[in-house]
């Protein structure tokens, strides 16, 4: 297990963005975190990266408490993120070289020549031509920018990469190319992904394990095939139906299903919180 959270709570002035979340990520697997907008998925990602301070609870990265100051270098070295909107996540004043050089030199000084080689190599890994090295973000397309963001995330070979809806601001064909790229990288680099999305069809394709989140809490989790083929929690059912566009047929009370605190294993490895 590479990362686990323990009763993680993040509250913002009365809003319970995360309300006691326990998740665990297994090494080398792609874990999906699904839920509607505003359910706390991004907050969880940001809490893992220490951008938001937890109100209470713990996060362990390879059994090291990341709240401790001495572990912060270890955290930055091993956990990286790819954001939703590639147009916003690259500094518009930095060339692609400068962006990747900054990422590369965080862990120590690198000679410019060696750095250039490393940067060209990482661009090739994300299937980008090295000719874009001196371009600015506004000179590249959305798909190319997202590849640069992925290159920035993997350039220091982190153990875990958080993908925060990396395809939702891209068109369908570009998105599928990015998904293919991520699948390839996962196999080549043996990197663990935490894939955050509200697109359950996509998660069904790419993930190995799934957590379903609702109102700051995990409501159901288990291996991907069990969760998506046999959803047990009403909220999960609603999400899956919604992704299959059966929303009109859904009984309304199911959408507002309260989260219960009793965890039940309904089949081997497949858990839901219910009464």
């Amino acid at each position: 297990m590479i990362l686990r959270t323990k009763k993680l709570k993040v509250h913002f002035k009365g809003v319970k963005a995360l309300d006691g979340v326990d998740i665990f990520l297994s090494r080398g697997l792609t874990t999906a975190l699904a839920g509607e907008s505003g359910c706390g998925k991004t907050t969880l990602a940001r809490a893992i990266l220490k951008i938001h301070e937890p109100t209470s609870g713990k996060i362990y990265l390879e059994d090291k408490d990341i709240a401790l100051k001495e572990n912060s270098v270890f955290l930055h070295r091993n956990v990286q993120i790819v954001f939703q909107n590639p147009f916003l996540s690259l500094d518009p004043r930095f060339t692609i070289f400068a962006t990747l050089y900054e990422a590369l030199t965080v862990c120590g000084k690198v000679k410019k020549k060696n750095a250039k080689d490393a940067i060209v190599k990482s661009l090739e890994e994300v299937e980008l031509d090295s000719s874009c090295i001196n371009r600015y973000p506004h000179q590249l397309s959305g798909g190319q920018l997202q590849r640069v963001c992925i290159a920035r995330a993997i350039i220091n070979r982190p153990a875990l990469v958080i993908l925060d809806e990396p395809t939702s601001s891209l068109d369908v064909t570009t998105a599928s190319k990015i998904i293919k790229l991520l699948n390839r990288l996962k196999q080549e680099l043996k990197v663990t992904f935490l894939f955050i999305s509200h697109d359950l069809k996509l998660l069904n394709k790419i993930s190995d394990f799934s957590f379903i989140m609702h109102k700051g809490k995990i409501v159901e989790y288990g291996p991907r095939n069990l969760v998506y083929s046999n959803p047990m929690h009403p909220y999960t059912k609603m999400l899956i139906d919604a992704s299959n566009q059966k929303l009109a047929a859904m009984p309304k009370e199911n959408c507002e299903s309260p989260c219960s605190s009793i965890l039940r294993e309904i089949e081997p490895g497949h858990f839901i919180f219910c009464d």
Binding site: I51, N85, S89, C149
Partner: peptide, 13 residues
């Protein structure tokens, strides 16, 4: 709060 600043933070800059 812009994402490129958050990205730099997560890199450990």
């Amino acid at each position: 709060e812009r994402e490129f600043v958050v990205a730099a933070k997560t890199l450990g800059v």
